[in-house]
Amino acid sequence: MLKIVNEHPQYIVAKVDIGEANLTHSDQFKTELVSLLNYKQRNVWLNMEQVTYVDSSFLGALVAGLKYALGAGDDLVLLGLQKDVHDLLKLIRLDKVFKIYADEQAATVALNQ
C-alpha cells in the first residue's frame, strides 16, 4: 500500500498506492506507515495523488502516524491531495496540523526556506 519512490537523507517520499482509502485499508496503512517511520527514522512525505477519497478511519490512521512521527522527532507531510480529499481535511481543520504541498518540489522549496 505504501511504496517508496524517493529517498533523501532528510526524508522519504512514499506513494499511497490505493484509490479509495477507507475502513478496509486503514489498519494496514497505519501499520505500514509506523513501520516505515520506525525503519527509516526520518521524515515521511506521503504522495497521495492517486487517492480519490479518504474516510475518517484513514484520516485517523494519518493522525496516528503524525503523532508517531512527531513523537520520534520526525514529521509526516502530505503531497498531491486531490480536491475532495483536501476539502475534507479543511472541513475538519486537519489542514492546520499537517504540512500539505502540491508535490515534492513545492515541499522542498517550502521546507528549505
Binding site: G60, V63, K67, G71, I92
Partner: peptide, 25 residues
C-alpha cells in the same frame, strides 16, 4: 464549533472523527 481558545496539541488529537465529519458536512 471551532474552539474559541485554539490550543492544538498534536498528541491530543482524536483519531475517531466519523460523527464529527457528518456534523460538519
Amino acid at each position: 464549533r471551532d474552539p474559541q481558545n485554539e490550543e492544538i496539541t498534536i498528541q491530543h488529537l482524536h483519531e475517531h472523527m466519523g460523527l464529527l465529519i457528518i456534523a460538519k458536512a
